[in-house]
């Protein structure tokens, strides 16, 4: 069934969009990532203009994250206090990010820098996570109980503005989570993603939060950041396609629920190995595209005069 998208100005198969939304939704619920880092390139691949893909994807992530967060709230695996701190940083970050995006656009290099951002961040995050979780898996297989040190006293603990995060069993300064939120907000606006794939590892490895709480808290913050991004794109660029978003999110919300159910049955380490592999695959594909000689050297920019 073909459906004409009013903002993207083209006709796309509705079932293809539902399927894409569903598939990415499962990953979203499973890993606590918005799925944008997969969906945005996929949408561009099927011919949606990049500007529309980025903006609409932000809107779709709102739906799948909200659906996911409700499931996590019921299981009490959301650290709302931590989420609010991350959110404050995220709000500032996404406003900054939109300004950076504008600047890059004027320089005409937005595509390249977005790709480079993807390759660098996905590569580093995926690589670290893969090594760490494989090691953890090996140890559990040998019968050694892996226990993360609860009280790592590093420079993070010397910072002021200490807060108690009951759900995460943490008593740390509010500054690191705020900064993580800020960075993720900037990246979200530039890359058209929720930022979960960076935030989840940052919360586990930098803040030392328990894996169980990380996913729900990440989703909680993503709702806010992508919601703000949607509004900014809708008002500044008019590139949010409601018809596209509805089709993607119908598939996405169902997928997210399935993913959240699956997540209960898979161990934390296994979950992390899978996510790391996924992140690395996307990274390698994008990196290859940057280096490989393209078959077509020319590309058409956006049409003016609309």
């Amino acid at each position: 069934m073909q459906i004409y998208l009013p903002i993207a100005e083209q006709s796309v198969n509705a079932f293809l969009l539902l399927g894409l939304g569903g598939g990415v939704g499962v990953l979203s619920g499973l890993f606590g990532v918005g799925g944008g880092f997969l969906m945005t390139p996929l949408l561009i691949f099927i011919g949606i203009p990049p500007a529309v893909a980025v903006a609409t994807e932000a809107n779709q992530i709102v739906a799948s994250s909200f659906s996911g967060v409700l499931a996590h709230l019921r299981r009490r695996t959301v650290d709302i206090k931590m989420g609010l701190v991350l959110m404050a940083g995220g709000g500032v970050g996404s406003v900054l990010g939109v300004q950076v995006f504008k600047l890059l656009r004027e320089l005409g290099q937005v595509e390249l820098l977005v790709s480079l951002c993807y390759v660098v961040f996905l590569g580093v995050v995926g690589g670290l996570m893969f090594i760490e979780s494989v090691n953890a898996l090996r140890k559990t297989r040998k019968g050694v109980v892996v226990r993360r040190k609860k009280h790592q006293h590093g420079w993070i603990h010397g910072l002021p503005l200490k807060m108690r995060f009951r759900q995460s069993n943490l008593y740390i300064s509010a500054i690191p989570p705020f900064l993580i939120g800020l960075c993720v907000g900037i990246l979200a606006a530039i890359m058209g993603v929720g930022g979960g794939f960076i935030m989840v590892p940052a919360m586990i490895y930098l803040l030392g939060m328990p894996t169980a709480v990380v996913v729900g808290t990440s989703l909680f913050q993503i709702i806010f950041v992508t919601g703000l991004t949607t509004i900014l794109h809708a008002t500044q660029n008019q590139t949010v396609d409601a018809a596209l978003a509805v089709l993607l999110l119908l598939g996405g919300v169902v997928g997210a629920q399935i993913g959240a159910q699956l997540g209960v049955r898979i161990k934390g380490e296994q979950l992390r190995v899978l996510l790391a592999m996924l992140v690395l695959i996307v990274c390698i594909k994008l990196g290859y595209n940057l280096v490989a000689t393209p078959t077509e050297l020319f590309s058409l920019g956006e049409r003016g005069g609309h």
Partner: peptide
Amino acid sequence: IYGLLSILVALMAGWGAS
């Protein structure tokens, strides 16, 4: 209004599925 409506639809769809 369009942006806010888009978010409202997204939240409702998320809640509905949940």
